[in-house]
Simulated scan of single mutants.
Amino acid sequence: MEPGSSGGGLTEYIQHHLTHNTGKLFSMDFNWDSWGVALGLGLLFVLWFALFARKATSGVPTKGQAFVELIVEFVDGQVKDVFHGDRKTVTPLALTIFMWVALMNAMDLVPLDFVGWLIQSVAGHEVAHHTYFRAVPTADLNTTLGVSSGVFLILIGHALSAKGIGGFTKEFFTAPFHAHGVMAIVLAPVNFVMNVIEWLVKPISLAMRLFGNMYGGELVFMLIAGLFASWVTFLPGIIANTAWGIFHILIILLQAFIFMILTVVYISGVRESH
């Protein structure tokens, strides 16, 4: 769909690109575009790294192997600086989060109307005009909440592994305000509420931070495409898109890094006692 291709102009153009390809799953709305792209990129990451892991040699590495090794060493170094326990499960988790989120974020660099152009080339303008597809999974709050919910469950697993069910439950009622006797009973509900809030804030803050940055970046691309849609402003539009795209690469990688490092920080925190 091109800007101004129908009476709605820029507003309709942006609304069209902000609409998900939604269907029903168990009587609930489900964004198939976010799910499909996220799944595809996750499988791409697994196949990519598995291929180079299988072909890895101890001699002079190929450029592809060197690049993969560079990423793995970078992530492992970051985990080592933050987490001082056994890293054999934490580093793979951090690597998966970093690469998966980075790949999903990078979909924001795909030309905005590329999918529409493909559909129009195959099925015609009318089908493309009425077909919705958002290519950036992390600009969908459902995706970021889904990933952060997975992290939340992993945090619970680490807490139970480190403290046991009894220690984990006890901590909810005895920290952060440690007390004895009657005061311990009085402060138990307060401790419980504060711990519940602390635990819930972790996945919500992870999801909202990533979603907000990627949604905002996606919206800027839409505004640039809509405002510089005519032939007169074509060259300025190319320059503006290129400039924002170069800057947005930093945001894409930075948000993936922040999501990864906060996950490791949270894991380190839940494994320690108050």
Rank of each mutant, 00 (worst) to 15 (best):
M1G: 05
P3C: 09
S6N: 15
S6L: 10
G9C: 02
L10R: 07
I14L: 14
I14R: 02
H16E: 08
H16M: 00
H16G: 03
H20E: 13
T22G: 00
K24S: 15
S27H: 11
D29H: 14
D29P: 15
N31Y: 06
N31S: 11
S34Q: 08
W35M: 10
W35G: 00
W35T: 05
A38D: 08
G40Y: 07
L41S: 02
L44D: 01
F45K: 06
F49I: 09
A50E: 14
L51D: 06
A56F: 04
T57Y: 02
T57E: 15
T57K: 09
T62C: 03
T62Q: 02
T62P: 06
K63L: 09
G64P: 03
A66T: 06
V68F: 11
E69Q: 14
L70A: 15
L70R: 15
F74A: 12
V75H: 01
V75A: 01
D76Q: 10
K80V: 06
K80T: 15
V82W: 04
K88H: 13
T89H: 09
L93I: 15
F98V: 08
M99C: 15
W100S: 04
A102L: 15
L103Q: 09
L103W: 07
M104L: 11
M104A: 13
N105K: 02
D108C: 04
P111E: 01
P111Q: 02
L112A: 08
L112W: 01
D113V: 12
G116L: 04
G116Y: 00
G116R: 03
L118W: 06
I119V: 15
I119P: 04
S121N: 12
S121C: 09
V122R: 04
A123D: 12
H125L: 14
A128F: 03
A128H: 02
F133K: 00
F133R: 00
R134T: 12
R134A: 07
A139D: 03
D140F: 02
L145Q: 05
V151R: 00
I154H: 02
L155S: 05
L155Y: 07
G157K: 10
A162Y: 01
G164E: 05
I165F: 14
I165T: 08
G167Q: 06
K170N: 14
F172V: 06
F173M: 05
V182E: 12
A184W: 08
I185Y: 12
V186T: 07
A188V: 03
V190F: 14
F192P: 07
F192N: 01
F192E: 06
F192H: 09
V193T: 13
I197Q: 05
W199Y: 12
W199M: 04
K202G: 00
P203E: 06
A207E: 11
M208T: 11
R209L: 14
L219E: 01
L223W: 13
G226C: 09
L227F: 13
L227Q: 07
F228V: 07
A229C: 11
S230V: 05
W231R: 08
V232R: 10
L235S: 04
G237E: 08
I238G: 03
N241A: 14
N241M: 13
T242V: 14
F247D: 00
I249M: 14
L250K: 08
I251E: 14
L254P: 00
Q255P: 02
A256M: 08
I258E: 03
I261P: 03
L262A: 07
V265Q: 11
Y266A: 12
Y266V: 04
I267C: 04
V270M: 03
S273E: 09
H274C: 06
